[in-house]
Design a protein around this nucleic acid. Structure first.
Length: 304
DNA sequence: ATGCCTGAAGGGTTCAGA
């Protein structure tokens, strides 16, 4: 479902918007529980596009809960949820076109689940993804995870050259992306087939913009709620922003918003934030005014 | 304890998460 916030004057006209924009992804672990954290965070960080995962809310309930506050902040949204588990969404204030929920040929468990929604925002085809957990290596759910990733790759392959795949991929791309590789031996998120499936997705030409920005650094996006894992920085990097080369080349900043993991009632994941510069001259499409421009034209008093 | 927290559904507990 698609909701319309703000005046909506940019809808459609921003299909080729290539100005600077801030894109974020956040597994909120229940958007209903996270409202007291999400709304202030939107006001503080002011992302132009937000990919949410684990909304755990049906679409009508999402609209009921967030429709008004999001409109007040200038966001349109596309929510794809199922009530109890899973659920993804895209929020945008730089246009929200050609929304597609789910994957037509994607696998289910056994039925299709709400794990991906795509929309074109500011000239970029944005995918908000929540990759299946996998539960145990070689389990049915693990095989479902690998099949789901292959289906995602097939969809992304057909999505043009301005692409971002953002979300909780439930895979630590390399050993440096977990606090203790030895602790994960025999567990999901680090196995060879999972990492290979992720590599196959990236082989379409997608760049892991946070790792590229912070090579060799300790960067995590998820910390277990238990045993003070966050405060000891014992986490994993499983929430990624993957961008096609023309988009990745515009990266001005890429970081994990650890502040959002602190304090009262946080998600167990932190948001990932990526700032894109204006597209270089000569790139596709007309460049229209940035989203910070007034949304409504106010009639000024005319001198007589 | 091997799920140490957190959330959802639904019911007085169980499943899921990574």
């Amino acid at each position: 479902m698609v909701g319309v916030g703000g005046s909506g004057v940019w809808v459609g006209s921003l299909a080729h918007y290539l100005g600077g924009m801030r894109v974020a992804t956040w597994n909120v672990n229940s958007v209903k529980q996270r409202v007291p954290r999400l709304l202030p965070w939107l006001e503080q960080r002011r992302p132009d596009v937000v990919c949410l995962q684990e909304t755990k809310l049906a679409d009508d309930a999402f609209a009921e809960l967030l429709g008004e506050p999001l409109a007040g902040l200038g966001y349109e949204f596309a929510a794809h949820g199922e009530g109890r588990w899973n659920g993804v969404a895209v929020l945008s204030r730089v246009g929200l076109a050609d929304v597609v929920a789910g994957m037509a040929d994607g696998p289910g468990f056994p039925q299709p689940e709400a794990r991906v929604v795509a929309a074109t925002c500011g000239g970029v085809r944005v995918f908000s993804v929540y990759v299946p957990n996998g539960r145990e290596p070689d389990s049915d759910h693990y095989r479902y995870k690998l099949e789901w990733l292959a289906a995602l790759r097939d969809v992304v392959r057909e999505s043009g050259d301005q692409v971002m795949v953002c979300g909780d991929v439930n895979i630590a791309p390399a050993d440096e992306d977990v606090f203790d590789p030895a602790a994960y031996v025999g567990h999901t998120h680090v196995t060879g087939p999972e990492r290979e499936a992720l590599r196959q997705l990236e082989a379409l030409g997608l760049k892991d913009v946070v790792r590229d920005r912070w090579p060799g650094q300790r960067v995590f996006t998820y910390w277990d709620y238990r045993a003070g894992m966050f405060h000891q920085d014992l986490g994993m990097r499983i929430d990624l922003v993957l961008a096609s080369a023309p988009v990745a080349a515009r990266t001005k900043a890429a970081w994990v918003d650890r502040h959002a993991r602190k304090g009262t009632g946080p998600s167990d994941h932190a948001p990932v934030i990526v700032d894109l510069d204006t597209a270089p001259d000569g790139d596709i499409g007309p460049v229209v005014p940035p989203p910070s421009a007034p949304r409504k034209t106010k009639k000024l008093p005319q001198a007589k």
